[in-house]
Design a protein around this nucleic acid. Structure first.
Lengths: 137, 137
DNA sequence: CTGTGTGCAAACTCTTTGCATAAGT
DNA sequence: ACTTATGCAAAGAGTTTGCACACAG
């Protein structure tokens, strides 16, 4: 993705295109369905020679999420994961590997969500299916 | 539930029926689908005049969960919740109220889980639908 | 008695915050 | 200039752990 595309994206989110935000956005939005947690993105940034603090990574991920550029979800009560695929979809989580895979359920699956109780509306949902390698029996 | 029923349950889990475990089990299994987090159960216990430390509550909840007496899940990356309903089912989470409701999807919904990738097997799943009160528009 | 369980406080992980400095417009 | 971002370190929530004492079998 060209740099000025990235800048446009950050601006579009109502955020100043600072060096750190551009760099993080560049790392994030180069892939359609990237899954990262804050710590991992911080490492990625350092590896890429970008000087950012972990706090800024957290802040930036939150800002991008609030702006709708990312989707956040959690697994096993530990880390928060961020997904560049913001459409309604579900995840496989591979235990012991700390790895996430998108599940494409296809169709209008999300229209089949359970009916909320009277007077309530659905804000969102989190659906994670936990996996492990099949034992070789 | 009579006390010796509770003791049997704790024993059945391979755990010594200590004063604390009996008391916590009594508080938990009096309801079919109770949802608590550690902090809340600790308070419940103190309110009931049971002297237990928070660490023991955490340990006991973990032990009961490993023994299959409870089911654990997390919402919004914060607290871990424990459910006395250990069957496969889903949850509504009411934001701002920190309240959990069971969703009974009925039927063999859990047999319609997505097909795991080659060589993987499903260990479990977490499905939480987040709700908020419908604005009075 | 012997081995587990418990309580306490300290440690730990992930995340947020306060405040001085730096950078965007 | 004026305002918003950043970095750092400290605080915070939730949970786990180490170790001495207590209790079940």
């Amino acid at each position: 993705m060209p740099v000025n595309e990235i800048e446009k994206r950050v601006r579009g989110a109502g955020l100043r295109p600072t060096r750190q935000r551009i760099a993080l956005a560049g790392l994030l939005f180069c892939k359609e369905n990237l899954h990262v947690c804050a710590e991992a993105l911080h490492e990625k940034a350092l590896d890429a020679g970008v000087r950012v603090s972990l706090a800024t990574v957290y802040n930036t991920l939150d800002q991008f999420t609030r702006a709708g550029l990312l989707r956040a979800f959690t697994v096993e009560g530990s880390k928060t994961w961020f997904d560049t695929n913001v459409s309604n979809h579900c995840h496989f989580f591979i235990e012991d590997e700390d790895r996430i895979l998108d599940i494409d359920l296809g169709g209008d699956w999300e229209n089949q969500l359970p009916e909320p109780p009277e007077g309530m509306e659905i804000v969102g949902f989190d659906f994670v299916v936990r996996l492990r390698p099949k034992p070789l029996s």
